[in-house]
């Protein structure tokens, strides 16, 4: 006799089916988009000189990989990752310092608010003059864009610690350092993780913006250069690579999140 499936097993099977279905449609959508694009270009519905096409992008990718594609990818990736790490670490440290000292927080509050609303790209020329035109200027740009948001969100998380729990620790005779390490930091882990995710996106914005402004290598440089000489294949190819890299980095952060959340 066939064993009857339990309610729970049925539920799991159903959830799994749903998940597979969603993934299938996602892949289908991508394939359909690429196919339609290629078809439209081949049949001349669109001018592939302006819109490029998947096959032209593939050809460009092959051509570039024989030249210095890796240098460009490496440059951009390096700038983005360094900017991301520096701004996240520094931003969190500053946020902790501001949590620690009420006085410092109150003094710096208006400055942070103003810096937050300032469009950081306006500082571009200053950065170039101060740190020179090169990867360090781009890292600087990335850090500037990420760090203020990091400070504001991280501080928000730290300050949202339950007052009652602080009182409990104080009644046990805890020092401020103990309150920070036993309660405030572990309690702010969710905020920290969301800061990481926001920063992945912002770090790319900062890096590409920096490369638009000043660069001699990198994907942002390729995009600007391609635009200037009207090589749309180059622009599209670089954009596709960028999409891919951004996705990889996002998933890396999502993985870190999963690891940290698994207790």
């Amino acid at each position: 006799m066939k064993k009857q499936k339990s309610e729970h097993e049925l539920f799991i099977a159903k959830t799994k089916r749903k998940k597979v279905g969603i993934m299938a449609i996602q892949i289908l959508l991508l394939v359909a988009f690429i196919g339609l694009w290629e078809l439209a270009a081949a049949l001349g519905w669109i001018d592939s000189f302006i819109t490029s096409s998947p096959s032209r992008i593939a050809a460009m990718l092959g051509e570039l990989s024989k030249q210095n594609l890796w240098v460009h990818i490496g440059t951009t990736l390096y700038e983005c990752v360094i900017g991301f790490i520096v701004s996240t670490a520094l931003g969190c440290i500053i946020a902790i310092a501001l949590w620690w000292s009420d006085f410092l927080r109150k003094v710096l509050e208006p400055y942070i608010v103003v810096l937050n609303s300032l469009p950081k790209i306006a500082l571009g020329p200053i950065i170039i003059i101060w740190v020179g035109a090169g990867p360090s200027a781009i890292v600087m740009m990335t850090v500037l864009i990420c760090i203020i948001v990091t400070i504001i969100s991280a501080l928000g998380g730290l300050m949202a610690t339950d007052e009652g729990k602080i009182l409990l620790l104080r009644s046990m005779g805890a020092s401020k350092w103990q309150i920070l390490t036993k309660l405030v930091l572990p309690g702010s882990l969710p905020t920290f993780l969301s800061v990481l995710k926001i920063n992945v996106g912002l770090a790319w914005v900062g890096t590409i913006m920096g490369e638009y402004l000043v660069s001699s290598a990198g994907l942002g440089y390729l995009i600007v250069y391609g635009g200037q000489v009207f090589k749309l294949d180059l622009v599209m190819t670089s954009t596709v690579i960028l999409c891919f890299l951004a996705a990889v980095m996002y998933f890396a952060v999502a993985l870190v999140e999963k690891l940290l959340k698994r207790r």
């Binding site: 339950d162 009652g164 729990k165 009182l167 409990l168 572990p186 309690g187 207790r263």
Partner: peptide
């Protein structure tokens, strides 16, 4: 001191 809410640390 046992406070009004249990104040257990969720993590």
């Amino acid at each position: 001191y046992m406070l009004q809410r249990d104040m257990l640390f969720e993590w």
